[in-house]
Write a protein that binds this DNA or RNA. Structure first.
Lengths: 339, 339
DNA sequence: CAGACGCATGACAACGTCGACATATTTTTC
DNA sequence: GAAAAATATGTCGACGTTGTCATGCGTCTG
């Protein structure tokens, strides 16, 4: 393999001078620099990261440890955000999935250690509370889309489910809807409670009574084996004599069944019933007809900001473990009409 | 940082002996081995991969270079398959996305080189033909879900779109359907032609005439900015006086709109019209009501087998660049009825 | 014009690991 | 019971890089 030494030989300088050129250090004549650069090009030399790391004990590598993230349609944008940041900042990304198994998780932390990772991004598929099995490794860590149960205060970046749901609810209220249905997310998800709270609070603030609301559970059970009541819940909701004029679906995926339930009863969307989702899971939100009005989970930015934050933590410039929250912008499409 | 030397000091042996214990080499007394292992545990020692690599010039690392893979709901299972294989076989995975930009691609190959990657898995989101910008790096490469345009004959692993579509078509024919509609995938995808061919050929073999078929284009245009005609195409197809009793949708995502189009016309699924998809993109196929009968793209296995194949290529045991094809199993659900 | 300074370059060691080889100890063999 | 073989452990150097320090040379200052 071509190393710094071969380059030095060809360029007729010492290896240290080559090193200087590579790292853009000062005190190299323009003429020498050019000779070295030519040699590098001619030999196709590429610096060896492993050697660098061993010398400097910094790997310039971040690890992503994810539960099912890279595995599922959802939230892969988090990973994309991280990768884009890494690419732009010359960092390398090592990625691993636990698949939910905690022995896996321990193994992965070991692996990260053995690569002398600078920091870890702990990412979850759904917004939730976790118990990271860090194995007391002491690698700087930032949580993305989740929050540690224990008070060990790792910095985290999360979506603002509350604000997103509040916006959606307001959007419906401002368009004259006064009977509104809500299909609840799986209660094990952190977003479930936040979104429901926002829905209740916001409708309450607008003067709606509990009897104006129609709230049903759409899903429950462990991730990957949940029971799905959405279709039944939506059907039942729409069969009431005093049926809601708008339904807020816990997320976009569930909205598919709300659409189908409504259409099976001969209701037109949005003329007879307005529907909103949550997440802006575009494979769904853009595929539905009419396209779905929803609140966009800021997955990409979650990843970008998370990497950024981790970087400052590693650099030591971030002292107190801060938790940031990112807003969920409303994406207006065609599934809601004004009354 | 705790290194092999500190362990040796604590255990009262030479560093080479520690190395022997770590690598399970013979010629170590049981007693010594235990003493060393205790020291390792006590100090929390973890071997330094970079040092290992520099010593052995093997990184035990594979790189994944993907177009948009980790980025999209689709095909992320390929990555999961690769990761699971890597995890089981003690390899590390470095992952990068081009986002479709070829300067990015060159940059990524450079990065891979600098990490002295053992091999590369070139993965695409959609089944298609590509021109990999390997930059003549000469790292062993396996293509997954795609095939190089040039004849440079890199080994590849691809899904068997033809066989999958054949199975789906037969399935419909065997259940008595004789008027069948087909909504075509974006023609830029390799699967589009294969699936359509299989559909035509199989219906032909069963004695159906071209006039029994109703074929419409569902999508076209560049990835990420395609024009979507699915809803219109399905609507038009079903408005024909001699409308098809079954519709084959180019993929599951498109099936959402076929469902909605049918329901908007008051048709029941599957009583009035049967529908099948392709891909088994479960967020969709399981969310639809009735659940969608489809052919499963073997994404996970594509990844698993790809990693396995790359491994043998790297080890040099695979001489001729072989191309494998993996079958798409039919997943029977409830969206088809027998006539 | 001597000393000080700035610039350009090189020599060398060290990072953590393991392969090659050497040495020491025990066991087997005839 | 001595030589041969097998087992157990250690010494040393090399991998590719960069930080530290040293050196050589030209220029400026007073």
């Amino acid at each position: 393999m071509v190393s710094i030494v071969s380059v030095a030989k060809v360029a007729g300088v010492s290896n240290k001078t080559v090193s200087r050129v590579i790292n853009g250090e000062p005190y190299v004549t323009e003429e020498t620099r050019e000779r070295v650069e030519r040699a590098i090009r001619d030999l196709g030399y590429v610096p060896n990261m492993a050697a660098r790391q061993i010398r400097s004990s910094r790997s310039n590598t971040f690890g992503i440890i994810a539960d099912y993230v890279s595995t599922t349609p959802y939230s892969v944008d988090i990973v994309r955000g991280i990768q884009d940041w890494a690419n732009a900042n010359g960092k390398t990304i090592l990625m691993a999935n636990t698949g939910g198994a905690s022995e896996q998780e321990i193994k992965i932390w070991k692996m990260f250690q053995s690569h002398r990772i600078d920091g870890v991004l702990y990412v979850t598929m759904y917004h939730r509370i976790v118990d990271p099995e860090t194995g007391d490794v002491g690698i700087p860590t930032v949580m993305i889309n989740c929050r540690p149960r224990t008070s060990e205060l790792l910095p985290s970046i999360e979506p603002d489910d509350y604000q997103g749901a509040q916006n959606l609810t307001r959007y419906l209220l401002e368009r004259g809807h006064r009977k509104i249905g809500y299909i609840r997310l799986n209660p094990i998800l952190l977003g479930a409670e936040l979104r429901l709270d926002a829905f209740r609070k916001t409708t309450g603030d607008f003067g709606l009574a509990e009897s104006d609301l129609s709230i049903r559970l759409g899903m429950e059970g462990p991730v990957g084996a949940e029971k799905n009541y959405v279709f039944a819940a939506a059907t039942e909701m729409l069969q009431q004599k005093d049926r809601p004029t708008a339904i807020m679906s816990g997320n976009d995926e569930m909205a598919i069944q709300v659409y189908i339930a409504a259409m099976a009863m001969g209701l037109r969307i949005p003329e007879d019933v307005s529907i909103v989702g949550f997440d802006d899971f575009r494979t769904v939100s853009l595929a539905l007809r009419p396209e779905l009005t929803t609140a966009a989970l800021p997955y990409y930015d979650l990843g970008l900001q998370g990497a950024e934050l981790l970087n400052s933590v590693v650099a030591g410039s971030e002292v107190c473990p801060s938790s940031r929250v990112m807003s969920c912008n409303l994406v207006e499409r065609l599934s809601v009409c004004s009354l």
